[in-house]
Design a protein around this nucleic acid. Structure first.
Length: 490
RNA sequence: GGCCCCAUCGUCUAAUGGUUAGGACACCAGGUUUUCAUCCUGGUAAUAGGGGUUCGAUUCCCCUUGGGGCUACCA
């Protein structure tokens, strides 16, 4: 059975590139009826960000990506079976790593290194200047055992390094890139245990992937150069390496790897701006993957069925906001008004608009912008004029370009009169529309002479939805009130 | 500097030896329209360059160029 994992480090909030990696790993597992787990790789204590773990879990949940296995977040107990609710956390598994590092040491696959950071940097510098590959010079690799013992007894600061072979090549078949080959002599004796007692990514990652039964390691392309180290570690431990699949990177407009430092890329940011998880998932799934058909709208469920390894591309993709906006609009448009109202409600609350009041017909209000808004925040913004106590606009705006002030006033007075006669119960978009439009054609007026001032009077805006939709959302009382104000202004 | 990866419209991509190089987003034009938007119709726009292999290369190979990643006791 296939088992995959998402293994982020909590050095910040989950960003969009991480979401895509998680999604692909998740989909590959689900497509094959396998399991997907989350493992937090927090072996770097200096870069740990408070709230990072919670944010990662929350963002995945928001996106609809379900974790099959991990640690129960309430009890802290590991749940190795399906149905767990949280992640494995590496900092809670230190004993395990230490045990394996000791084994590697005992079997001669690793060694203590007492070199100072300053010395290492010097060596690197020199190597670079001489156009040599920058790898550890091996000073401590062949240190006599007696000397090592003395150093350890003196509690000299040290790390543990793995012994890479000095000749031969490491070849492997990446599921996405195909065969890749590295010269072993160019690969560093990687530090596997830091002087602070924490393992490095390379060691902890290999141990955990094996122990957790990961069959397919799915991660970003930035890891490609370190695969030989990992394969060597598997060999030393006598384990069969998993399949590797390295995903092309998500990059910004400058074609650089997406990262927290370049700004606005956290999943939570997109949530807060009013992007729907469906849209974000759909968009991100299509970065580096396509179904081979011309269908572009895929729900998570559909992706779980149709996702395919063979269709994953190798080249990096630029994150393009406009296409995301399009997806978001598509999902907004296709949602029922009722469900949509539920989704938008928190955004109204955030904006301080009291939509709960019976005065407002929430479904009519959201309908105003449902076909137009890119995001939920944008929608709430655009629709805020409905809730205004008093509209602010220049009286001249009420006059249509082909008309006069006097004419606008006269038309508005008549509109006011006609609409006043409508019963509160019959106050609908269709109702007001029929009365006004019939009257316009009866009098042979121009649409613009009537509809423009009417629309401006009740919206206060140069550009807005149509007047009858607005009247419906506003209700009779407020519509009449705004029309009266407009007449006075003229 | 060393190693590795990548290369089709501006962007996301389809076409794995034979297509007028297709679709989507964006953009432009026209239509519908009281405004903006929606919607409909149409349009501009790409195989980085050079060598091979082949009857035939977007497609296979090599070189160049360009971009990116890694090169930490970060992941």
């Amino acid at each position: 059975m296939i088992k995959t994992r998402f293994a982020p480090s909590p050095t910040g909030f989950l960003h969009i590139g991480g979401l895509r990696t998680a999604l692909f790993a998740y989909l590959i597992a689900k497509k094959n009826g396998g399991d997907f787990l989350l493992r937090i790789e927090d072996t770097d204590r200096e870069r740990f960000v408070d709230g990072g773990i919670e944010n990662i879990i929350r963002s995945l949940q928001w996106a609809g990506i379900k974790i099959d296995e991990g640690v129960d977040m309430d009890t802290g107990n590991e749940i190795i079976q399906k149905g767990g609710s949280g992640p494995y956390i590496q900092s809670e598994r230190l004993d395990i790593y230490i045990e394996y590092i000791q084994k590697l040491l005992d079997e001669g696959h690793a060694y203590h290194c007492f070199c100072s950071k300053e010395k290492l940097e010097e060596v690197r510098h020199e190597q670079e200047e001489n156009k040599q590959p920058t790898i550890y010079d091996g000073t401590c690799r062949n240190m006599p055992e007696s000397e090592v013992k003395i150093m350890l007894r003196e509690e000299r600061e040290h790390v543990v390094r793995m012994k890479m072979p000095t000749e031969g090549v490491t070849k492997f078949n990446d599921l996405i890139h195909g065969e890749i080959e590295f010269q072993n002599k160019l690969i560093d004796d990687q530090v596997i245990l830091k002087s602070d007692g924490f393992p490095t990514y390379h060691l902890a990652n290999v141990i955990d992937d094996y122990l957790m039964g990961i069959t397919n390691v799915i991660r970003g392309d930035e890891w490609l150069p370190s695969v030989p180290k990992h394969i060597e570690l598997y060999k030393m431990l006598g384990w069969k390496p998993p399949y590797f699949a390295h995903l092309s990177l998500l990059v910004n407009e400058k074609k650089q790897k997406l990262s927290k430092r370049h700004g606005d890329v956290s999943v939570q940011d997109f949530e807060e701006k009013g992007y729907l998880p469906e849209a974000l998932i759909n968009f991100v799934a299509f970065l580096g993957w396509n179904p081979g058909s011309e269908k572009e709208i895929f729900t998570l469920d559909e992706l779980e069925k149709e996702f395919s390894f063979e269709k994953i591309g190798k080249s990096p993709s630029i994150f393009n906001r406009e296409k995301l906006d399009w997806y978001n609009r598509e999902y907004i448009k296709s949602m029922s008004n009722e469900e949509f109202a539920n989704r938008v409600m928190p955004f109204f609350v955030n904006a301080g608009l009291k939509v709960e009041s019976k005065k407002y017909k929430i479904e009519s209000i959201i309908a105003l912008e449902k076909e137009r808004a890119n995001t939920l925040v944008e929608l709430v913004d655009e629709v805020a004029f409905i809730f205004a106590e008093k509209l602010e606009y220049e009286p001249t705006l009420l006059v249509w370009k082909k008309s006069t002030r006097e004419d606008a006033k006269e038309k508005l007075e008549q509109v006011l009169q006609l609409l006043s006669q409508i019963d509160n119960n019959n106050w609908t978009k269709e109702g007001t529309q029929k009365i006004i439009m019939d009257w316009i054609s009866e009098k042979s007026y121009n649409n613009g002479d009537v509809l423009w001032p009417m629309r401006v009077a009740i919206s206060g805006k140069k550009n807005s939805p149509g007047p009858f939709e607005i009247a419906d959302a506003l209700g009779k009382d407020k519509t009449i009130e705004r029309l009266e104000t407009a007449v006075k202004l003229l």
